[in-house]
Structures are given as C-alpha cells and as structure tokens.
Design a binder for these strands. Sequence first.
DNA 1: TGATTTGCAAGAGCACCGCTCTCGTTTGTT
DNA 2: AACAAACGAGAGCGGTGCTCTTGCAAATCA
Lengths: 240, 240
Amino acid sequence: MEQKAKTARQRAREEITEEILAAARARLTSQGPGELSLRAVARDVGMVSSAVYRYFASRDELLTALLIEGYDSLGASVEEADRSVTDRADISGRWSVACRAIRSWSIDHPGDYALLYGSPVPGYAAPQDTIGPATRVISVLIATVIDAHRTGAARIPSAPPAAPHGMESTVAAAMDFVKSRDESALLSDAEIAMRTIMAWTTIFGTISFELFGHLVGSVSDYDAYFDQMIARVGHDLGIL
Amino acid sequence: MEQKAKTARQRAREEITEEILAAARARLTSQGPGELSLRAVARDVGMVSSAVYRYFASRDELLTALLIEGYDSLGASVEEADRSVTDRADISGRWSVACRAIRSWSIDHPGDYALLYGSPVPGYAAPQDTIGPATRVISVLIATVIDAHRTGAARIPSAPPAAPHGMESTVAAAMDFVKSRDESALLSDAEIAMRTIMAWTTIFGTISFELFGHLVGSVSDYDAYFDQMIARVGHDLGIL
DNA sequence: TGATTTGCAAGAGCACCGCTCTCGTTTGTT
DNA sequence: AACAAACGAGAGCGGTGCTCTTGCAAATCA
C-alpha cells in the first residue's frame, strides 16, 4: 500500500525526536556527556521524563544518536573544507584546511568532542551504526594522502633505520579498509599506511591535549602550534 | 611542643583516609571516573556516606586526590623504567623503555588513565597540587632528549621547508619550563622543543586511541604498532 | 580527677538522577 | 462504530551527592 502522505502522528514523532536531539545537543555544548541528564532535556522540551522514553529507550540510546550526529557534523565540516580547495593538486592546501577544520569544529563543539574522542562510558560499546560516520574524517585525510602519491607529489616516508619489521601485518586492517572502499585508491605502501595512522592520532592527540588542558604551560599560542604541528606531520608523512 | 607520637585519633584518621583512597582506587580500575560513587566507596569501607565527608569535602576532592595518586603512580613507573637502563648513553633503549612503561601503566590502569587523560569533568579545574606530579612523565622524556643532544647522539630534527616561522614564541613556555628546572639542561633549539611536545602528544594520542577504541579496524597488533610508532617518533625527534 | 571542647560516625532528609509501570487520552485502522 | 496502537502524565523505586542534627568518644584544659 502506498504510504506517501505521512500521518500526523508520524510527523509529530519525527519533529519531537528532533526537538529532543536538539535540546540534548544544546546541553552537550555546555556540559559533558557524563552530566547529560535525560530529565533536564525533557524539561527543556516541555515534557515529563518518562515521555522521552517513548523516543529513546535509554540514556545510552540518546547518547548514541548524539554520537552519530556528532561524527556526521564533524565529518561534514572536514569534507566541506576539503572540497573548498578547488585546486585538487594543492595537497598542502588540502591538508592544512582539513586539519584546521577538525580543530575548529572541536573547539566549537567541546561537549561533542568529549563525547566522540574523550573517555567512553565504561559499560557502553558504540554500536555498529557509528562506525560509518566515524570514518568520514580519516577518509578525507586518506584521500589526500592517496592523491599526493597518485600525482607523484609525495615521497615514501622514511622509516627509522632500526625500526622493527613486519609492519604489513600491524596495519593490514587499515590497508584492507582503504582497499575495500576504493579498489583503485589504495595505500600502496605499509609505511604510508603506518604514517597516515600516526598523523591521524597526532592530530587528535593534539586537540585532546589542548581541550583537556594538558598543553597549559608548554604551548603559548595554540593556533600557531597547531599549524606548525600539521606542517611537520605532513612532512613526516611525505606529502609536504 | 613535640608531637612525635601520633595520637590515636591522628593515626586513625590517616589510616581511614588511606582506606577510602584504596577503595576508591579499586573501584576506579573497573569503572570510569564519572561513575565513581562516593556512597559505594563508603559502603566498601564499611561507613555511611556522610562519614566520608569528614575526610574529603566533596566528590571532586576525592577525585583530586586520586588524580595526584595517579600521576605519581604513572610517573614513578616511567622513572623506574628509565632508571633500569644502566647504560645512560643508550638513548634508544631509554626511549623505548620509557614509552612502553607509559603504555603498560595505562593498560593496567584504564580507569586511572581515563581520569588523567580522558575528558575532564566540565566544571572541574585541576588544582595546582596536580601539576607537579603531572610533569613527571614528560620530564623523563625531556631528560632523554636532552641527554641525546648533550652526548651528540642526536641531530637537530628537520623542519619542513614550508613550515611557518616564529616557533620560539609558541613553544617558549616549554623551553622556559625546562630552563627553570635545570639551567644547564636546556632544550637549546626551538625545533627540538616543538618536536618533543609533538612526540609527547603522539604517544598519549596513540594510547588514548587504543584504549578508547578508535584504532579498531585500523591496527591489528597494538603492541607492534606502538613499538613501530615510538621508533618513528624518536626518529622524527632526531634522537633515534 | 573532673569539666569541656573537639572529632567523629550515624541517621534523616533534600533534590536530583535513570528507569518502570500504570492510567487515561488521542490517533489511526478496520 | 469498534478496536488497537501510540502517547503524555504521574507515581514510584532505588540510586546519587550533599547537608544537617544528634549522640558518643577522644583529647585537652582546669
């Protein structure tokens, strides 16, 4: 049977679900995920707490929805920043613009950042639905690395002389992930894959340290430090 | 007046304080900091919740005490690992042993790690008492870097050609920190300071990603990945 | 030694939390 | 019109951090 016209109830349900999410998201910018109170967001949308359970089975399910929204919001920001570089051969520009977009979004959404990249709720395992949105950021970085090597603008990053061998197996999962998404666009070298993962962790490690206060007393100018950091990371990666 | 012999009350107070901390610490290994319940630790030590407030003015104060204990525990582990390398000129050995000690401690104390390096409680600012213990880890790393350059075993790390200038001001705080501790042992070069901070954030970024589940699907062998990572970080730092 | 001040554990209580259940009411379907 | 599903509101359960009062024991003073 055709069901094109949504019934009023369906429409209301979608709207209210969005209202709850918006209220929770608003609270998340000023508070941390652990302090998010389901009763408080219920009050914000003018409902009684038990009514929220008609839309989200538990607080964790609400957090999961926010998690996905957060990953998508961050991912969209970074993708848009990357797209804004019209000269696709400008690897340096794409790299810095994407990295800066990650940091800008994180600073603008500290609560969401803590939810995405801070300590997870111990008993809570992120469901499968989150891994897709979660890979959007690293996908942009990987695409830049691949393009850099495809156009010949990059060199194979240098491994330390005494580095242990057998890298192929340790980063095999990452290389498989890339190959599974685009057969033609592969991280052809394990050293590149290794360096890409390192770059990724360094960028987020830096942002976490900045937002969580661990760089106080070490770094005076966060903007400048971040720019210098991504230049060096890109250099070590072989793309700058 | 001499007060060498502690009165029974003082002795009891110290013991009970230690009992509470031990119980809280035990709960912290299995739970996260956000889930630590003051009432639960009170039950664990056979007290009523209000009695705990005789020893800690608030839950945050208890967390602060655990924070200091955690930094000291991690710092002591890393310092001991560094000390275990009898050949002080073996920079490579000292570097890998110290880095591995950080990771081992973190894996053995996931709850404490989340407290130290995870998302902080939003309204909670770590008091001054914590910064001393908090600097023990980075101090070991800095000492290794300084020794590497003092003995001439290291090179000045390479800056990317197009890197922005004016680094001295962005990492001035770090260089001042080192100089303030030991006038003779200084990070003589801003590039070295910059690279040392980067190494530090990369190491903790990697551990956070591993413990918080962000490397699932990218890294297959965490032990091997970490070893490869610290080799490259040390190489980029110029000490390996 | 006796009186008094102090430290402390216990309990009741407040406001909040996540979550469950029941109970009328509204909405959609047949 | 009759029935079923969805829904909002409310009460309630056990939990939380924290405050206040009460009574007792320990330390100090006279």
